[in-house]
């Protein structure tokens, strides 16, 4: 396959550059470790990371690989999913696992819905969803005895 200068792996190089920064940040953090045992390893690794990243950038400039084509996709839904997951995690200690989980389930169901909402689906999907959430909650909390957060707002 012939390389095309227009399809240089810019993204890969940007990521490598970011990782160089990560490496520098890690090196800076190691400066205040008390014990020699604790900084030898992270310093070596951060150093190797920086070397590999620079090598990768140089390699990319020397011979650019090709890029993958992508179809039309919805960035909004992607971002939505991530936000729902984060909000669910952060609200868990206050709302309790059950409520956060149930809300997250319903929100993600809306995000993942591409078919039309027929009357049957409007009823069946949330019902099945609630059953799934309750089922897992029961399995983890009652059978496997996982102390799922109860929610500080409601319980004593």
């Amino acid at each position: 396959m012939r390389a095309d200068p227009a399809s240089r792996d810019i993204g890969g190089m940007v990521v490598a550059a970011v990782f160089v920064l990560v490496g520098v940040l890690a090196l800076w953090d190691t400066l205040d470790y008390a014990d020699a045992d604790s900084y030898v390893f992270p310093r070596t690794v951060a150093g190797s990371l920086i070397v590999f990243c620079i090598a990768s950038i140089v390699w990319n400039l020397a011979r650019p690989p090709d890029r993958v084509q992508r179809g039309p996709e919805s960035t909004m839904r992607r971002v939505g999913l991530v936000i729902v997951l984060l909000v669910a995690a952060l609200s868990m200690p206050y709302l309790g696992f059950l409520l956060s989980g149930l809300a997250a389930f319903m929100a993600i169901m809306l995000l993942a819905m591409y078919d039309p909402w027929t009357r049957a689906r409007v009823f069946v999907y949330p019902l099945v969803g609630t059953a799934i959430v309750l089922g897992f909650y029961f399995l983890f909390n009652k059978v496997l005895l996982v102390p799922l957060p109860a929610g500080r707002l409601f319980t004593g």
Binding site: A89, L90, S100, F105, M109, Y125, V128, I132, P149
Partner: peptide, 25 residues
């Protein structure tokens, strides 16, 4: 399973599963 059920179910499992490993938010 239709996508609108599969995605939230798997997502919910990642939440409950991850929490349960060390009981940690």
């Amino acid at each position: 399973v239709p996508k609108a059920m599969l995605v939230p179910t798997v997502a919910f499992m990642t939440l409950i599963g991850t929490y349960s490993i060390r009981n940690s938010v």
